[in-house]
Design a binder for these strands. Structure first.
Lengths: 413, 413
DNA sequence: CCCATTTACGTCAAGGGCTGAAATAAAAAA
DNA sequence: TTTTTTATTTCAGCCCTTGACGTAAATGGG
């Protein structure tokens, strides 16, 4: 693809790396003194003075008084990150709507907008116009609410694969081929609100659930998560060593058309027994006996009806979820065989209906450790906790990651 | 796992990176002048003078006369890598034998040894003793043949997963739990022949086939390959961005127990419809009607018999391979859905019998691009070209990668 | 109340790296 | 032989980290 541009390294890169190292330590481990931070990062004390001064100068870090309960000697001055210094415009674009928010890097959303975009199918320019307008509005609101805030950029979740070059493929928008939506947006925004970054919505949801999981477990080393969701379709994403892995074509971790049954029914994609044929909304609602509802009121209504049926304990619905759990269990085995991830997280209605999937999952995954006592354990899939906002949270997480990776991108005050 | 040691960066790391950048350019693109190299790497001319002098001082690079056919002006002095400056001990350890060789980094093997090791099952110390002895012998031969050669280390392919910490799990050797074989070997070698690096044999085979593929295609940007092999069992490996990805537990890309059939037969691992139940040597020879041969003469003989049957065109053998091709096709779809690799490479008898697998593969993979014109193409699996020596070649490739990543590890002359 | 002790942090010279401009080297053309 | 052209080397300037040393700011004993 790209002609291997891999740039040379310079002293400036060393600085970037070490600034990032210090800022990430403070962000992940809470307030700590210069000395503690130096010890934790392996940097010399002298370097830490300079690095801390740099971060303070950019408004990213501040002194938070002396640490309590010290013994003798000069008390430690604690450093902490400044919550509101940096924000980003985060968004989610769907076929019909634009969800936008300005969030600080802790993830607190603000200035939320949720508007329909009546842009004609297949016209990327019109969508870019609507998006640019909404982004400008959100950015302006964020700037007005917190004067002096640095906007780290515009991070958008889009339905469809995004390549390393930023091209978006999306049949959702009626685009037959690749569209450089980021470039269209940049043209219209002209550098306001910083760089424009697009990513696949399921990948961002994976990142958000990954972050949620690591925060809940108290930080620690970066791990890996495979995310598997179903709502309007079956999708997924992959986070390895804390970073989204989308593959060269942007479709890594997309399990919808992974075959799980050799002699399964034929799929529109040309293969047979694809996962989507078992876990997709059409298949699942039909299996639960809601084909009539689906035909009459649409797929979304049928999914809602299935949810009600499950809570009511209707036998056909329960049986359908049992079967789906088994298929999901097989898919989880395939994922863990190939990817060796620490965790598998479910999203969409797979998360919502996790209690009813557990029996089927268990029947496929129980006893699976038997072979090779020391071999990798197969993680039980965990229900995601972020719901429909996962990809929006993922956009914020990506913004956070971007700033933490290069604190020097934030201007000096 | 590890407590996130991520070290700080210093000017020395810049040097390491840029030395590597220059040496890799020369290794991958053949001889080129300082000016050309500077342009290709993005380094300043002045820096290149110093970097080239450093590499020359370590004996890794030499001047190769002026470039032919220049126009006016001072002719370009070409730089080229020195083939014999660095070698490594590469090896493959199986249940019964030790294969060892000393190879220069271009991959030319030398001083090949292939000896049985009659070490009692389950005794890592005895295996380490035998290995250390063979490694010492090979290293001594390499040093004698080329005085002054730098030995970059000992790189060994082992059957079984290797974790990031170097622990080896191997039921092949009758070890019930993890063994730090590298540490045992280091104790015995005491720094002779450099660092000891262990890696999974299938992962190394994947690396070797990846390198073979990129070299054949004329270099270029690092890509990704999924490797799928069957010989005494079903295994595989994963190379992404030119590097082995083994996952946190060392089992990424191990497809043997990936389920491909929801209602398939039960497997010893506790799951159903595992890939190994269709492509493993027992399953395949039985399907071809060679169960009798297998019972009488063993699995290896049955596999050989199946090879003869295929070449003889026996219908049952051909039918078994057709069916296996279909299963393999489904597995390839699963792999490409989850991993978005550029290529899938087959190894073991899957490579050898590729002609007979093609029909089944084709029937599963043809027309698979239909969905989403711009979506990722599904690559047709390619037969590997390295045969049984793939993992040994992979050990050499890993040695090469290690030296190219840190030329400063080679001492000044 | 003062001072020694202890701990944290700031300062600064030294060492190494990269850059880019100017100087030098080496060949072909005039 | 001189000029022109192109490649490479040299060197001053700047940035980064390190580690020793000095200073700041507390506690506790006399």
């Amino acid at each position: 693809m790209r002609p291997a541009p891999e740039p040379p390294e310079s002293p400036a890169d060393v600085r970037r790396h070490n600034l990032s190292r210090v800022l990430r330590h403070l962000a992940d481990h809470g307030p700590s003194s210069r000395g503690e931070t130096a010890a934790a990062t392996g940097l010399a004390h002298g370097s830490l003075t300079a690095l801390a001064a740099d971060l303070v100068g950019r408004g990213l870090v501040r002194e938070a008084g002396s640490a309590p309960g010290g013994g003798r000697g000069r008390p430690r001055q604690r450093l902490e990150t400044v919550p509101g210094r940096v924000a980003a415009v985060a968004g989610r674009v769907t076929r019909e709507r634009l969800h936008l928010t300005a969030a600080d890097l802790a993830g607190r959303p603000d200035h939320r907008a949720d508007l329909p975009h009546a842009t004609p199918d297949g016209d990327p320019g019109a969508l870019a116009d609507a998006l640019a307008d909404a982004v400008r509005r959100t950015a302006a609101a964020a700037r007005a609410a917190r004067p002096g805030v640095h906007l780290a950029g515009t991070f958008l979740a889009v339905p469809g694969p995004v390549t390393a070059d930023g091209l978006v493929f999306s049949t959702d928008f009626g685009w037959p081929g690749p569209v450089d939506l980021a470039a269209l947006l940049r043209e219209r925004l002209g550098g306001t609100a910083g760089p424009v970054v697009l990513a696949n919505d399921a990948n961002l949801a994976a990142l958000a659930e990954y972050r949620e999981l690591t925060v809940r477990r108290g930080g620690g080393a970066p791990g890996s998560v495979a995310y598997l969701k179903a709502d309007t379709g079956v999708g997924g994403g992959l986070v390895v060593d804390g970073r989204i892995r989308a593959g060269g074509h942007g479709v890594a971790g997309e399990p919808g058309h992974m075959p799980v049954a050799l002699d399964g029914p034929p799929c529109a994609c040309g293969a047979r027994g694809c996962l989507a044929l078992y876990l997709g909304p059409e298949a699942l609602t039909d299996a639960a006996g809601l084909a009539g509802t689906r035909a009459a009121e649409g797929t979304e209504a049928a999914v809602a009806a299935l949810g009600r049926a499950l809570r009511a304990g209707e036998p056909r619905a329960l049986a359908a979820l049992d079967a789906a759990g088994e298929v999901l269990g097989a898919a989880v085995l395939a994922v863990t065989s190939l990817l060796d991830v620490d965790d598998v997280v479910l999203g969409g209605y797979l998360a919502e209906w996790h209690p009813w999937l557990e029996r089927g999952l268990e029947s496929r995954l129980a006893g699976r450790r038997a072979l090779g006592a020391g071999a990798a354990p197969v993680p039980s899939p965990l229900p995601g906790v972020l719901g429909a906002d996962a990809s929006l949270a993922g956009a914020v997480a990506l913004a956070r990651q971007t700033v933490l990776a290069d604190p020097a991108s934030v201007p000096r005050l």
